[in-house]
Design a protein around this nucleic acid. Structure first.
Lengths: 225, 225
DNA sequence: AAACTGCCTTAAATTTGCATAAAGATTTTA
DNA sequence: TAAAATCTTTATGCAAATTTAAGGCAGTTT
């Protein structure tokens, strides 16, 4: 799950960021409205958390411009007590939910879950392909010969492939979706994880395999034998 | 993919240029606003990267003049930290995205991909001619007798020909578009790939063929029989 | 007809991209 | 705080993709 966090108070932003990452979200943090707009319009966030009072462009404006461009990522807006009227404006502008500062972490997490649930509902909790199952709850990968637990990165990689069966996914797309736009990890970190996944798939006796297409990317396919 | 890079700092420009070329873009580099405008208005770039602070004419002006002429190539503007207000001005002037210096190469590449993807969405994903189909997603070439996957160079060559059905394309044009202006590959590398493509086309039973016109170039035509 | 030019095809040489192992770095857990 | 798990980089081998090189053929020029 990729989130965009737009909050100009550095300390609060850092704290939220840490906790969100701890809860298995991939988070990009930005600190003003212009950046929020620039990042948001790339269009592939599963949720956007938007502070209203920000430099350059306020949150409502950002939201309006994003919606005007057809960006439909769910948006949660953060308002200070004194700006409570903005709630209404925000919801009118196309926000999905709002939260008043100060708030508890638990509440924020719950609302993010609620906000992204609609999308998540379309995706079953247990992904299946061939004789192999992947649990979104426990990250357990199960095949005829046993069960192994995947790490977070391993899981995200395999999840993307299982959600797009037999579709070719470019290495860059993996990097963007899982590591984020501004990550400076090397591209070959993907190769390494593909290798880990192959080893685990074979350990549990899976009848699916990861196929590489040179110069392009990877796809998950059923073994034909 | 053809890009125009307008950046007056020679060193930065050279570095970017090298990396972009390494990522399969054909790049023209210019070093002031006047040239950026002159080149940009020719209108056949898939993306334009525009520094704001430049001699002769600043980036925003260039952008405005290009848009006024109906040039719709997507534009990414580069701003220094001190010019952050220009972001807004730039987006209002019709930029598609911006990036603040200093930036990571990975982020620049991601943004260029995102920017050009929107345009690519309009292009059909499956090219067809006669009984033959070419997928832009998987690079698969399909005919009545089967499917083969093309390599990157093979694909680009055939893609150009399928997008310009029955049009004669000069060998130099192939070299410019696919290998880039300053490539030092020999001309016969094109001959070699044409040969590979012919072999693959016949293997899948295609009813189209690559015709050579002595001294000029190649065109793709339906077999008449 | 001989020499030449432009293209075709195949094979060999080179470069590049990916697979995997292993080590180093960082974070989590006990 | 030590141990374990996870994440990332580095190194090496291998195979596919790309490029160069070379011999052949057909049409053109001398």
């Amino acid at each position: 799950m990729r989130l965009l966090l737009a909050e100009d108070e550095k300390e609060l932003s850092n704290a939220l960021c840490a906790i969100l990452k701890h809860n298995n979200y991939s988070v990009d943090a930005v600190y003003d409205g212009a950046d929020a707009y620039a990042y948001g319009r790339m269009g592939d966030y599963d949720g956007i958390i938007l502070d209203i009072m920000m430099p350059k462009m306020n949150g409502i404006e950002v939201l309006k411009k994003l919606r005007a461009e057809g960006i439909s990522s769910p948006v949660l807006i953060l308002t200070a007590k004194s700006e409570t009227d903005d709630k209404i404006v925000g919801l009118d502008a196309g926000a999905d939910d709002y939260l008043t500062k100060p708030f508890s972490m638990g509440e924020l997490l719950a609302r993010i879950r609620a906000m992204t649930r609609r999308k998540a509902d379309f995706a079953p909790n247990l992904l299946e392909m061939g004789n192999t199952k992947l649990s979104r709850e426990t990250f357990d990968l199960t095949g005829p010969d046993g069960t192994l637990r995947l790490s977070s990165k391993e899981f995200q990689l395999l999840e993307m492939m299982m959600m797009n069966k037999s579709q070719l996914i470019s290495t860059e797309r993996f990097m963007e979706k899982i590591w984020g736009y501004d990550s400076d990890a090397e591209i070959n970190v993907v190769w390494v994880y593909i290798s880990y996944l192959r080893k685990k798939l074979s350990q549990i006796g899976a009848d699916i395999e990861i196929k590489a297409t040179r110069g392009v990317g990877y796809s998950l396919e059923e073994k034909t034998k």
